[in-house]
Design a binder for these strands. Structure first.
Lengths: 349, 349
DNA sequence: CTGAAAGCGCTAACAA
DNA sequence: TTGTTAGCGCTTTCAG
C-alpha cells in the first residue's frame, strides 16, 4: 500500500508517463537493456538488473502496451464473444459464473479480457472484423449454435479459438464441455438405485449437442441396466418450461406407469414438475425426477428435484487454460476438455 | 455478405494485414492523404476520397489500433470495473442486464469494452495500475461500496469515471442511479391507494445509499399522506432474506395491526413473505407487500408481491452515455442521472 | 488540397 | 553482456 508516489505531477493535463528512455537514463544504461530487464531476459548482469529495477520502481514505469503491440504483433488480449440469440433465455447466471471462471484463470497471466456481445447480424460483422484484424491473440466463443460461421471465419484468419460446448457440426476445434453423456447416465443410475424401473426422459432438441449427449447418456445407461423399453419412452422438447410441461404430460398419457424420469434441462424440469403436480402425481414418492441443471436455476426456484449440475465456473477456467495452451502451441491437435458433472440430490419439500 | 475476398493469402503464417502505405500506393496518393480520408478530414477532394475509399475496400484495410493509439494517446477503450465483495450475493442477473445495456450503448461508437473483475486486494492493485497507465480512456465503476478508494485514485490519474449508484460518501463524481427515493414513495402511494393505513417498512442498511434513499422515500410519502406514525414503524435489515424474515416478524410483534409493508429489497421481500406465511397472515388480503426489486429475482421465484423495479439495462446505457459525454467535455461539472423506477403490480397466486 | 518527414514507445537484429 | 540501429503503422505539423 505504501507505493512510491504515483507519477502524478500536480500541474496541467499533459502528464506524460515515463518511458523506457527515461528509465534508461536514470539507470545509466541503454533502452535495449531496460527492455531486456522488463521482459526478463536472462542475459543481463545482476547489478544492471538491480539498477534498472530500482529506476523502474522509482519512476513507476509501466510499459506502453500500444508500442509493444505495434512491434511484437501480440496484443496480450483475448476476446470473449457471446452470440446472443433472441431465443436464448435465462442464461444470465450461467454467463456470469463462466465469466468468473475466465477471470480467475486470467489473473495469473498478463492478458486482458475484452468483451464482445454480438447481437444481430450487423454486430456479428463488426465483431468478426475486430477479431480478424489483429486486435486479439485469441478468442473464447460462447455461441451454442451449430450453424454459426463465426468460428470457422476466425480460425481461417489464424486466430486460435476455444469454444464452449461440443461443436454440433463436428467441426474440429478446441472446446470445453460438461460431461453431458455422463450426466444422463448418472441420472439413470440414480433412478435405478432408488428402485425405479419404468423410466422415461424428456430430451432436448437433437440439433444441439447437449440435447444429443444427454439423451445418449440416458439410452446408454438404460441399456446397461437392461431397461430396454426405456429407450422407447423418449419425448423431445426445446429446453423451455412449456415443452417440459407438454412432453411430461404426453409421456404419462402414453405410459401411466412411469415411476422415474430424466429431464434434460432445468427449465423443462420445472415444467415437468408442474405437469406432474397437475396430474396429481406426487414427487418423488410416485415419480422420481432428475433434471439436468444448466443454470443454477434451482437456487432460485428451488424445485425439489435431483439435478445434474455443470461446473460452470470451472468451464470458464478451462476455456482460458486451453486457449493459453493453444497460444503457446498453435499447431497442436485440437483438444476437448470434458468436465464431470455433479449429481445434486434434493429431498422434496 | 459478398465482401471482397478476406485478405487471407493461402500461404504460410506471416500474413500481414494491409497498411496505410499499401492503400496509398494502390490509390496513387500519399499515406497522409489516406489517413485523412480514414479519419474523415473535410479537406480532401471528392475524387481522391473516392479513389482512396475504393482502395480501402478493395484491400479490406482496417486501421491498426496500436499504431494509432501510440500517436494519438487515445485507446478507444473503456473499462468496466466490478469490485466483487465476498458478501455480494445474487447479483448475476443485475450485472448481466447492465452489461447488456452497456454494450447496446457502445455499438454506436468505436469503443471497445474491457472487463476488469477485481476480487480481493491484490487484483484491485492490478486493476488500478492498468487503468491509471493509459490503457483506457475512461472507466465504468460497479462497486456499491462507500469506502472504496478506487474511484478517487482513478480520477486523480486523470481518467474520467462514471459510477453506478450514488456514492455513499458524497464524493463528487458522475454517476447514474435509479430513483430509489421515488421508488419508496411510489410504494407507499400504491399501498395508500389500496386503502392501507397502518404501514411499516423493512428498510435496508443505512450505510448504503439504496438503503438510505428508499427509506427516505417511505418517510416522505407517509408524511405527505399524513400517516405520521408510519415513520416509527421501521425495521432495518441487511438486504438478505434472513433479515427480511426476522424484521418482518419483529414489526408484526410490535404492531399486529400492520396492513401494508414496504420492503427495501427483493431478497428481504421474500423473507418477509415467508414470515407472513408462517404467522398465518394472508398476502395481500391481510397484509399488502411492496418490495424493491433490485434484481429480477421475482422472475425466478415469483413471489406474489408488487415490486419497484430498477431499469437495469437502461442504467448501463446511461453510464456509457454519461462517460462519452465526459470524454468530450473533461472539465464539465459532475452530473447525476437518476432514472425512474417502475411499479410492477402482481396479483398474488 | 496534398505530400514529405518526424516521431509515438517499444523490440529485435546486429555489432561491439 | 551491452549498445546501436532500424523499423512496427499511424498521425500530424509544415511546406508546397
Amino acid at each position: 500500500m505504501k507505493n512510491g508516489e504515483p507519477p502524478t505531477s500536480a500541474d496541467g493535463k499533459p502528464r506524460r508517463l515515463p518511458t523506457l528512455e527515461i528509465v534508461a537514463e536514470l539507470a545509466g544504461v541503454s533502452r535495449a537493456t531496460v527492455s531486456r530487464v522488463v521482459n526478463g531476459s536472462p542475459k543481463v548482469s545482476p547489478e544492471v538488473v538491480a539498477a534498472v529495477t530500482k529506476a523502474i520502481s522509482a519512476l513507476g514505469y509501466v510499459p506502453n502496451r500500444a508500442a509493444r503491440t505495434l512491434v511484437t504483433r501480440r496484443t496480450d488480449t483475448i476476446v470473449l464473444i457471446m452470440h446472443e440469440r433472441p431465443d436464448t433465455v435465462f442464461e444470465d447466471p450461467f454467463f456470469f459464473n463462466m465469466l468468473r471462471g475466465v477471470n480467475t484463470a486470467l489473473t495469473t497471466t498478463d492478458l486482458q479480457l475484452v468483451l464482445l456481445h454480438a447481437r444481430g447480424e450487423q454486430q456479428r460483422e463488426r465483431a468478426l472484423r475486430y477479431v480478424c484484424n489483429g486486435h486479439v491473440d485469441g478468442a473464447l466463443l460462447i455461441s451454442m449454435h451449430g450453424d454459426d460461421p463465426m468460428p470457422t471465419a476466425i480460425t481461417a484468419a489464424g486466430i486460435p479459438i476455444v469454444a464452449m460446448g461440443r461443436p454440433p457440426s463436428g467441426r474440429r476445434t478446441d472446446y470445453v464441455d460438461a460431461d453431458n453423456v455422463g450426466g444422463g447416465r448418472e441420472a439413470v443410475r440414480h433412478l435405478v438405485a432408488a428402485g425405479r424401473r419404468c423410466l422415461a426422459t424428456v430430451a432436448g432438441p437433437m440439433d444441439m449437442s447437449p440435447g444429443v449427449d444427454r439423451l445418449r447418456g440416458y439410452v446408454d445407461a438404460t441399456r446397461d441396466g437392461e431397461l430396454h423399453d426405456a429407450a422407447a419412452r423418449v419425448a423431445y422438447g426445446d429446453f423451455t418450461e412449456a415443452a417440459g410441461y407438454r412432453e411430461m404430460k404426453a409421456l404419462l398419457e402414453q405410459t401411466p406407469g412411469i415411476d422415474g424420469v430424466f429431464v434434460a434441462s432445468d427449465l423443462m424440469g420445472i415444467g415437468a414438475l408442474r405437469a406432474l403436480h397437475d396430474l396429481g402425481r406426487r414427487v418423488p414418492e410416485d415419480v422420481a425426477v432428475v433434471g439436468h441443471d444448466d443454470l443454477p436455476l434451482a437456487a432460485y426456484a428451488d424445485p425439489p428435484l435431483t439435478t445434474i449440475r455443470q461446473p460452470v465456473e470451472l468451464l470458464g477456467q478451462e476455456m482460458v487454460r486451453l486457449l493459453l495452451h493453444r497460444l503457446s502451441d498453435p499447431d497442436g491437435e485440437p483438444e476437448a476438455i470434458i468436465l464431470p458433472t455433479e449429481l445434486v440430490v434434493r429431498s422434496s419439500a
